[in-house]
Structure formats: structure tokens, C-alpha cells
Amino acid sequence: MRRSIIIAIAVITAFMIGSCRTQPVNIVRIPVKSSTTIDFLKYKDVAYDPVKVEKFPSEYDPGPSIDYFFLNELPKMIKKPIKRQILEGKPVSDLKEGELLLIGGEISLKIKERNVIDEQKGKKKRRIFVKIENWELQLEIFFRDAATGKDIFSKKLKETYNGADRKKPDYNFEFLFRKITEKFVKLFMGLGRLETRYLMK
């Protein structure tokens, strides 16, 4: 009898201790800088070699938006003027290393059409098929020393926009292009992001 009471007390105590046990860590977030930063000050000049546009629908030309970003918005971020220079990524032999930083790359778009059911509300509920588009934009950018032809930074990024309105290609492209360029800027400017760590109690 006494033995069973002791066992019962031991089991209850074990359960109580078990329930009181908390996680031995706290999850904290620390700001970290991206390590892939580019020292733009090292270069005398920065040039933009127009990004190659691949697989875009013929009725839409993304060129002006892309050029505007590289020639007007990016110079403000890197605090250095960027000139337009068509080199097609090829090295320039009469330049010295560190003289010219070349920015270029490739952009491509995939559009998949889908039929979805759209419920129209009114006196009579009607179900109709509507065509929507799923957009996938891929951008590959390189930062290259024009003298050596060596890439100091290159990255390929992808962004998708599902359920895009096919009547608004300008909006769809701008939406995706903004998202993708924001990611790029964060990467090569070394802007902060948060990372989790386990702080032990």
C-alpha cells in the first residue's frame, strides 16, 4: 500500500516537473548586413550596358522601365552617375583594372494563361470563365570590371505574380520589376536584414 502511494507521488511529481519545463532558449533576431557589397567608390566610372530582353510579348517593350531604373534610380542609390555604354559584356582592352564598372545582364518573362471561374454577383448569380495570367520574371545582373571582364557580383533572381490581369501588362511588369530590383539592391548594397539566433537561458 505504502509502496503504491510512493510510486503515485513519484509519477505525479515527474509530470509536474515535466509540465514546468520550458524551452531552454529564447529566439532573438539580430540585424545583419549582406556580405556581398560592392565598393562603387573603387571605380572611376560606372556604365550601364543595356540588359538583354528575352522572351517578351511583342506588344510590350520593358526597355524604357529597365533603362530608367539603371540610369536614373540606381545612380541615386550608389551616389555615382551611371552612363549608358553598349559593350555587350565584352572586356575593353585599353582600360585599366578598377577604371570602369560595367552593369549588365538579361531579363526574361514567362506568361502562362489560365482559365478561372469568376462569380458575378447580382440578381442572378452567374459563373463565367475568365482568363488570367501567371507572370514569371527572371533577371540576371552582373557587375563586371570592364578591363578584366571579371564579375565582381552576379546573381539570378526570379519573381512571380499569379492572377495577373492580362489587360494591364504595364502594371504587371512594373509590379514584378519593382519587387525584383528591391531584392537586388538589398543584396549588392549590403542593406540589413534580420536573422534569428538562439539565446540560451
Binding site: V25, V32, E195, Y198
Partner: peptide, 16 residues
């Protein structure tokens, strides 16, 4: 495991 995860994240930060 917590320390190991912290180390691996730091290593990823040093060498992405």
C-alpha cells in the same frame, strides 16, 4: 543543437 544551428548560420553569413 541550438549552438550548432547558431554556428551554421554564422558560417553562412561569413560565406553565403
Amino acid at each position: 543543437e541550438y549552438i550548432k544551428r547558431n554556428i551554421s548560420r554564422l558560417k553562412k553569413r561569413i560565406n553565403p
